[in-house]
Simulated scan of single mutants.
Amino acid sequence: MKSLLNTALLFTLVCFNSQAQTTPTEQEVIKLSMDKWKWMADKDIAKLTPLFDPQAKFVHMSGTWSTARELEIIETGSIWYKNADVKDTAIEIVGNTAIVWNRIALTANVRGNDVVTEFTVTEVYQKEGSDWKMLALTFSSVRDTHQIEK
């Protein structure tokens, strides 16, 4: 029983400590990043359009394209980002720029087939007024043992 209580206390301290290390701005951008994965899965173009800067670039395993093309791909479902299982996240803020790294297992439907691929996704956001705009999203294929150095 004592061991169980010690484990629970340690878990609580680790969770509290990891949350205490992020600033409100970092928490805001991380939440936006997590929301983006849901909006992509839901093919919610109305929410994604104001998030993606018109000049943003999207780097995938099969190519690099513009915001307009990414939105078209999401809307038509030619790549359906069904679920991004986020395993780890790191963030750095430099001035009005935020860089987010998410290590994910992405379940996507591509050309009618469901595939699961491990990625580290790099997202670059820039603060414009009171809003964050995504400038870049890059998928890097990684092994399932890959870790983000913080």
Rank of each mutant, 00 (worst) to 15 (best):
M1G: 12
M1D: 02
L4K: 09
L4D: 05
L5C: 09
L5D: 06
N6S: 07
N6W: 07
T7Y: 11
A8I: 14
L9N: 10
L10A: 06
L10W: 01
F11H: 14
L13T: 11
V14L: 08
C15M: 08
F16E: 07
N17G: 14
S18T: 15
Q19K: 09
Q19T: 06
Q21G: 09
P24S: 13
T25G: 00
E28Y: 03
V29P: 01
I30H: 05
K31N: 02
L32M: 12
L32G: 05
M34K: 15
W37N: 11
K38V: 04
W39D: 04
M40A: 12
A41D: 00
A41W: 02
A41H: 01
K43M: 06
K43A: 06
D44F: 04
L48F: 15
D53P: 12
P54W: 04
P54S: 00
P54G: 03
P54E: 04
Q55S: 14
A56M: 06
K57A: 12
F58L: 00
V59H: 06
H60V: 01
S62Q: 11
S62R: 14
S62F: 15
G63S: 01
T64R: 13
W65K: 08
T67L: 09
R69W: 09
R69P: 02
E70Q: 13
L71N: 03
E72S: 13
E75F: 09
T76Y: 09
G77D: 04
S78F: 10
Y81E: 06
D85M: 01
D85H: 05
D85Q: 08
K87L: 04
D88I: 08
T89Y: 13
I91L: 02
V94K: 15
G95V: 04
N96V: 07
N96A: 07
T97M: 09
T97V: 10
A98M: 07
I99M: 10
W101R: 12
N102K: 08
R103E: 13
I104A: 10
A108R: 09
A108F: 00
N109Y: 01
V110G: 01
V110M: 10
R111S: 12
G112S: 07
G112R: 06
N113D: 08
N113W: 11
D114M: 15
V115L: 11
V115Y: 06
E118A: 10
F119Y: 13
T120Y: 06
V121L: 01
T122G: 11
E123Y: 02
V124K: 11
V124M: 10
Y125N: 08
Q126D: 03
Q126W: 05
G129F: 00
S130C: 10
W132D: 03
W132H: 04
M134G: 11
A136M: 12
T138C: 07
S140C: 05
S140G: 02
S141N: 13
R143G: 15
D144E: 10
D144R: 01
H146L: 00
H146N: 05
Q147A: 13
Q147P: 03
I148N: 08
I148Y: 10
